[in-house]
């Protein structure tokens, strides 16, 4: 009886967590499958393509050598065999061998990841803070035209090409003012300009969510109540409006990771930084399919795990979801009682 009670208590948590874990696994598997299908459905032999880039017309066409290379890069055997064995290798952290450099793809990614994460994390923070500032400014702006003007600015963050932002920042802040280095990945100063570049689209997406939530909350009854109670403007904004705006922003972190992962390719090229993006660009230039697949899988895993954590956190942060989860088993056990009786 006692253990059943404990199980019952573990039930709601497990029932809340298990689907999210399964969903994360599904995203990783499905991304792998889509990538695999794409590579094998498109015409061209990846090994031949990589060799042609490396050696030009002098590339070998000796079938024995090609077979040996295929085995070395894990591109031998039947399609089904490759599909299954590469997927299982993922769980051992084995992403195969680079066709261009001969290094382990996992090692290459592991070495580059911290530099990319440093920029991406700073970009997320800058985008978040910037979007918040614009949201509050737009909310407080009284004349309608001023509010309209302010809310026109953040969407520009998506329209401006990242290489243009990067080039302008380098020419002003690195060459004219000399405040930050123009390239490289040494220390915090080198992350600032790339992070600002990446933060523009990130901030634009955050702003969309913030402004929608804030203007909705601004009209809500609880805000009118708070005002009627005589609370000051900063308190109303900070305690009542922003809280409602920040929560939905968390849910789009997954989307942001997608944007950041795509953006790093351009940003790391503009700023000549080592990182995941640079690795990917070099791999595409060398037609190194193993590295491209490896990077896509690492991004997919990061995306899936972050989305899962956000989903779980949401349950902790938003009491409405927590109580809904806690309430579920009670209604279910009511429904289950007569059925259980029938079984007996």
């Amino acid at each position: 009886m006692r253990s059943a009670g404990r199980l019952h208590r573990a039930g709601p948590v497990l029932r809340f967590v298990a689907p999210k874990v399964l969903q994360a696994l599904f995203v990783v598997w499905a991304t792998y499958t889509v990538t695999f299908l794409l590579i094998h459905a498109l015409p061209g032999d990846p090994v031949l393509a990589a060799l042609a880039v490396r050696a030009g017309d002098a590339a070998t066409t000796d079938p024995e050598v090609l077979d040996a290379l295929r085995a070395q890069y894990g591109l031998d055997g039947s399609i089904l065999h490759q599909y299954v064995s590469h997927f299982l290798a993922l769980f051992r952290g084995d992403l195969g061998v680079s066709m261009a450099t001969g290094y382990d793809v996992s090692d290459m990614v592991a070495r580059a990841l911290p530099k990319t994460v440093a920029v991406a994390a700073l970009a997320l923070v800058l985008g978040f803070v910037g979007a918040l500032a614009f949201t509050i400014a737009a909310y407080l702006a009284r004349p309608q035209w001023l509010r309209g003007a302010i809310s026109q600015i953040p969407p520009l963050g998506i329209a401006i090409p990242a290489f243009l932002t990067g080039v302008v920042l380098i020419s002003v802040f690195a060459f004219q003012l000399g405040w930050f280095p123009a390239s490289g990945a040494d220390g915090f100063a080198s992350t600032v300009l790339p992070a600002i570049t990446l933060s523009l689209p990130t901030g634009a997406i955050f702003y969309q969510v913030f402004s929608a939530a804030v203007f909705e909350a601004g009209e809500a009854g609880f805000v009118r109540t708070a005002r009627a109670k005589g609370l000051s403007q900063p308190v109303v904004i900070g305690r009542h409006i922003l809280r409602n705006a920040v929560l939905p922003a968390i849910t789009i972190i997954g989307l942001q990771i997608g944007y950041l992962a795509g953006g790093t390719a351009v940003v790391e090229t503009v700023f000549s930084r080592d990182g995941i993006g640079r690795i990917t660009v070099d791999a595409v230039l060398a037609r190194d399919i193993n590295v491209v697949t490896g990077v896509v899988m690492v991004v997919a895993v990061i995306y899936a795990v972050t989305t899962m954590i956000v989903d779980l956190l949401y349950g902790v942060l938003d009491p409405r979801i927590r109580t809904r989860v806690a309430a579920k088993p009670r209604t279910r056990s009511h429904a289950a009682t007569p059925a259980g009786g029938d079984d007996a």
Partner: peptide, 24 residues
């Protein structure tokens, strides 16, 4: 729709990079 969900989850530019790496 599940396939579409996954295609939406993979950042567009990465999808394009896979295609370019395979096609040239």
């Amino acid at each position: 729709m599940r396939v579409i969900d996954v295609m939406l989850a993979i950042p567009g530019i990465l999808l394009a990079l896979i295609v370019v790496a395979s096609l040239g």
